[in-house]
Simulated scan of single mutants.
Amino acid sequence: MKRRDFIKVSMLAAGAPLALYLPQGFAPARAQAKWKIGFSQVTTIEPWRVQFNKDIEAEAKKHPEVELIVTDGEDKTEKQVADVENLIRQEINALLISPKESAGLTGVVEQAIDAKIPVIVLDRNVETDRYAQFIGGDNVVIGRAAGEHAVKLLGGAGAAKGKLVEIWGGLGTQASHDRHNGFHEFTDKEKGIENLLDQQSADWKQAAAYDVMATALRNHEKIDMVYGHNDPMAYGAYLAAKDVGREKEIKFLGVDALPNEGVTWVHNGELAATFLYPTPGAEGLRQAIKLLNGEKIEKKIVLPTLTVTKENADQIMKDNGLL
């Protein structure tokens, strides 16, 4: 079974089933040669983003009627804004964007819409509802799954105890806030769970998470669990604990569940669990093509999650040719 089969899309529309917001004056019309679709990616450094790009590029190869233009924001809001402005000047037929920051990319998204370019937002949202569609995992749901599992590992509902380190992805990203809020819906009910840090961000990076965890280990003699908002940060925290001989006393939870990364770390016993956050790239391109062909699309598509533990990690790895 290939990765695409592993993260089969479950289309769960939110809100009005066929509600559609298009730029005023937009009318689908076949380009002379190909549809020109721009994709503004925030960065190509993070492994999940690398897989994201692979998925959308693989889907584009199935559609000879599409010319896909991919840009790399280099993890900088100003660079991503400039990328989108350049795509607008190229007169693309549709824009796919995965923003670095919700607020920072809202203005240029509205510029595209004002230029009669429909926009599909992927993964992280923007602060306007004028886009045609949003596609992504539900980070609140993922956070809830992680929080429920954390409580289970720390003794169960009503009896859970432990000292918790949470490492945020980015304080300016809605995904990080949603993963935090969903998680704390469960952990905050447990009087025995103590949160040791206050909004410590590692910007989704493994090396930065190592540093956050190294400081936490120096400051706290006892840590029972780490919740990283993605797998690289959870793994960075694990490495920091391993370097001082404390990794066996701590349970590490992450998010993403790439087979060759988070799932592998669960298989190795380095993470206790990870929670699937599927990439929306392939589905985003399919939806853009539908839109350009004049079909109605849902305002929101939510991709499913999955809890990965020792019980199912091996099978996932086998299905992806890693065992």
Rank of each mutant, 00 (worst) to 15 (best):
K191M: 06
I193A: 10
N195I: 10
T128H: 06
D203C: 06
G155E: 15
H220Y: 13
L122A: 02
G147Y: 08
G169A: 04
G158Q: 08
A146L: 12
F134N: 05
K191V: 09
S102A: 14
E166R: 14
Q111H: 05
V226W: 05
G182F: 01
D114E: 13
K116Q: 10
H180N: 11
G172H: 11
G147S: 10
V121P: 12
T128G: 09
A209C: 02
Y210P: 02
Y210H: 12
A157C: 00
L105C: 02
K161R: 10
L122F: 04
T173Q: 15
G169V: 01
A208V: 01
K100D: 10
Q199A: 11
P99D: 10
Q200T: 13
V108G: 05
A214T: 07
G172I: 07
H220Q: 12
E194R: 03
A202W: 01
N86K: 01
E91R: 15
I88Y: 00
E91T: 04
K163W: 01
K189C: 01
T187Q: 01
V119Q: 09
I97H: 08
L105G: 03
K222P: 01
L154E: 10
V151N: 13
A112G: 11
D188W: 01
K205N: 14
L154M: 14
D178H: 08
A209K: 03
E85Y: 11
G107C: 08
V108T: 09
L217C: 07
Q199P: 00
A160R: 02
N181C: 01
A132N: 04
G137P: 06
Q133T: 04
Q174E: 07
L196E: 11
V140F: 15
G107M: 11
E148H: 10
A159R: 15
Q90T: 02
H184S: 04
G156D: 13
N125K: 12
D138G: 04
T128C: 04
G169N: 03
T128R: 03
N219T: 12
G143P: 04
